[in-house]
Write a protein that binds this DNA or RNA. Structure first.
Lengths: 302, 302
DNA sequence: TCATATTGATTCAATATATGCATTAATGTG
DNA sequence: CACATTAATGCATATATTGAATCAATATGA
């Protein structure tokens, strides 16, 4: 059988070739001379080729041996660099963590964690797939992402969900909008204004529709967009109002935009960590998750 | 100890990674499943790294395994191409023969043999070191040349000599030279003409001087050059005559040049094969020598 | 010239390693 | 929930590797 060749055989050959002596090479390899002698014989037998010309005094390469020497060196080099590289991966000096994260959650959750993580593990690259709830779920299931940050509704038997934070929906509107002056908003108020919604493909929209239809409430959307950030832009430009996760909203010091609590039923989405049940988490990704939970793990109490 | 890794281990890992199954991989390797399983375990233990994520149903790569896979492929590839290359060398589909040959002998001996050899072994490159007797001898001794074609006088304990051909010295002169008309040449005749000789470093000159001084004959050289071919050129231009190995002379159909036998003592050089006694001859070089002897091996009888 | 030292190869017994068979544990599938 | 299929494990056995002792060949130096 071919392929029954050890790297030690190559190393042995290289050393004998370089030193021109079985004796010395054997010492360096911490082997007895006969063991080395037979090792080289085995190698030559395996390759069906004579690599070394031995006299009882000196040893030197045959032409074929001279041809093989640099190749053997390359093989050993590739092998040793592989080991080095894997050590780096194993000790988290190198590597990549891929996170499938809702775009809004990316803004909210990740920056603080990434800062700390990159400080602790400067060699590790972080890749954020800022995709929709459904797509993010798929990426986790098929292993493209190490884990996800997603809504609870994006569930499946193939993933486990760890809640991180409850994110209530609020009414987003301009500070100068008539409704902004009202003390509390009623569902009926929303029939009077132009409502901006995201398309029915969105996980947020599904969540919202399900919650409201249970109460017999129906929203009539005037503008429809794909992304939450776009609807926020339309609100800011004064085209209408939108029902958005609070997390989407800019801070309270924003000039033109503000938000108002919605009436009952209290609608919220639960954001959490999504992990594949079939793919095991890489140790590097686990490091990131540990840090993530340390930052946000208690937030569901709020 | 590291380096105790077989190429079969790499092959096994690659196959399991590609097929995603120990079972199938074991079949393809003509191994039992447990044997393969343990082989991969050994590999992982050796590298101190987890390469494959096993469930009882499926098997797939860990991130580190995915990183290692292409490296393993490269190692196997290098190994297999090495084997192929050595097979080509061993079967004389590739290779080089280096011959340290006297320049005159190169013209005389080699063309016919090279023609036949290149036809039989079209992949083999032939390198001719057309150097002086002394230098050619050195090249054979230190292994730069596989063998030499040289004079018998270029001897040494470190080489063996196989005579091929006896090459007598003749007087080279122009057809219109006064001496050309004489029936036989006497040594005294040469005192009347301008003699062109090669320098005393030359093996030919040494041979000649030694043979003549034994008889009390001394030549007075007028022109001195380094190479036989140059002296022949000077003869042709009419500057004088030269004592040259017959082998150097052009064929009998030459217009202006001709040669005459010299008187006793009959001076000749023996041309032959020079082989190193310490370096063994490569099998490819042996092929060439076989062919060379087939062409010229009987010539010493003449 | 001959004893000596050093080289690589060989012999042999002990050990280490790899293998196959039978079996177990785990887990998708119908 | 039984069944089939997967990878791992226990164990006996075959194979390979090893070092110590020894051999054969050959430079070296007196």
């Amino acid at each position: 059988m071919t392929h029954r060749l050890e790297f030690l055989d190559l190393q042995a050959f290289i050393l004998v070739a370089e030193l021109g002596s079985f004796h010395e090479a054997a010492q360096r390899l911490h082997l007895s001379q006969p063991a080395l002698s037979r090792r080289i014989q085995k190698l030559e037998e395996l390759l069906e080729v004579e690599l070394l010309e031995r006299t009882t005094r000196r040893t030197h390469l045959t032409p074929i041996g001279a041809d093989f020497l640099p190749r053997a060196r390359r093989m050993i080099e590739e092998y040793e660099s592989s080991i080095l590289n894997m050590r780096e991966l194993a000790t988290h000096q190198k590597g990549t963590v891929t996170i499938a994260c809702l775009p809004t959650a990316a803004f909210y959750f990740l920056p603080s964690v990434i800062r700390g993580f990159s400080e602790a593990w400067p060699g590790i690259r972080i890749r954020i797939l800022d995709v929709s709830a459904n797509e993010g779920l798929q990426r986790v299931i098929n292993g493209e992402a190490d884990f996800g940050i997603n809504m609870f509704s994006a569930q499946s038997a193939e993933v486990s969900f760890t809640p991180l934070l409850r994110d209530p929906f609020v009414l987003a509107l301009r500070s100068d909008h008539p409704l902004a002056a009202k003390k509390s908003i009623q569902w009926a108020d929303l029939e009077q204004v132009r409502l901006i919604t995201v398309s029915r493909d969105s996980g947020n929209r599904t969540l919202l529709d399900n919650a409201l239809s249970a109460e017999g409430i129906r929203l009539n959307s005037f503008y429809e967009v794909q992304h939450l950030s776009t609807s926020l832009g339309l609100v800011e430009s004064g085209l209408g109002v939108a029902i958005l996760p609070k997390m989407t909203m800019p801070g309270p010091d924003h000039d033109t935009l503000c938000s108002r609590e919605l009436p009952e039923p209290r609608i919220q989405r639960t954001i959490g960590l999504v992990r594949s049940s079939s793919h095991s988490i890489s140790s590097t990704a686990q490091l990131f998750i540990d840090m993530l939970l340390e930052h946000w793990g208690n937030s569901t109490d709020s």
